[in-house]
Amino acid sequence: MLKIRIIPCLDVDAGRVVKGINFLSLRDAGDPVEQAKAYSDEGADEITFLDITATHQQRRPMIDVISKTAEKCFVPLTVGGGVKNIMDIKEFLLAGADKVSINSAAIKNPSLINESSKKFGNQCIVVAIDAKKKSKNWNVFINGGRVDTGIDAISWAKNIEKRGAGEILLTSMDRDGTKNGFDLELTSKISSAVNIPVIASGGVGCLKDFFDGIKLGGASAVLAASVFHFKELTIKQVKKYLKSKNINVRIDNLDK
């Protein structure tokens, strides 16, 4: 049976892991390469690595950090941040990424999703949606949460599925860094609107939040940053808890 994935996320800025609240006020949380290795050894099912200021600062993604991270981590590595075109995606894959997450570039040039998924396979194209509640709906934001596109998140999710994306990384900007739990309404609306896996992100604060994201949000995977970075929860703890709640998680490697 397919297992629910627990994904620690490394938000990277200028070569260091950082963590912000509602996408801003970053604070330092360590070395990405060491953290990725520690997570991988601890039983992380995947690792996500986001260069969160790359688009905003208009600089090249840090290929060398990605490549060093990939050397230490023998679980799937998703890399995102600052991806503009097919060449960037190729460069990430060559550096050792298994999947590439695109966000701003997909909004500016949606055909990039079609082209890249055709060239590299649907499975390695993840489209990230940063969504923020606007009265009854959610709008898609780009440039690291700085620009409101005015596009409805649910219709955008359907659109990117049609264009060939393999997965959606859904972040609630309202919940990001708040530890108030995932935006379950948003997560469940998006995951029932599409047939591709949805990774829930933004807001995990306690064990129950993981369970709710899966059970109530319908997510195929749950992603968290702060709770893991600051060692408030360990991956092992989360998996044991979920297993006790009859969620199917990978636990076979945890005791080695």
Partner: peptide, 13 residues
């Protein structure tokens, strides 16, 4: 029945 998420992505037994 269109009830599976495709791709089959993740850890499976």
């Amino acid at each position: 029945n269109n009830n599976l998420k495709i791709p089959h992505m993740g850890w499976n037994t």
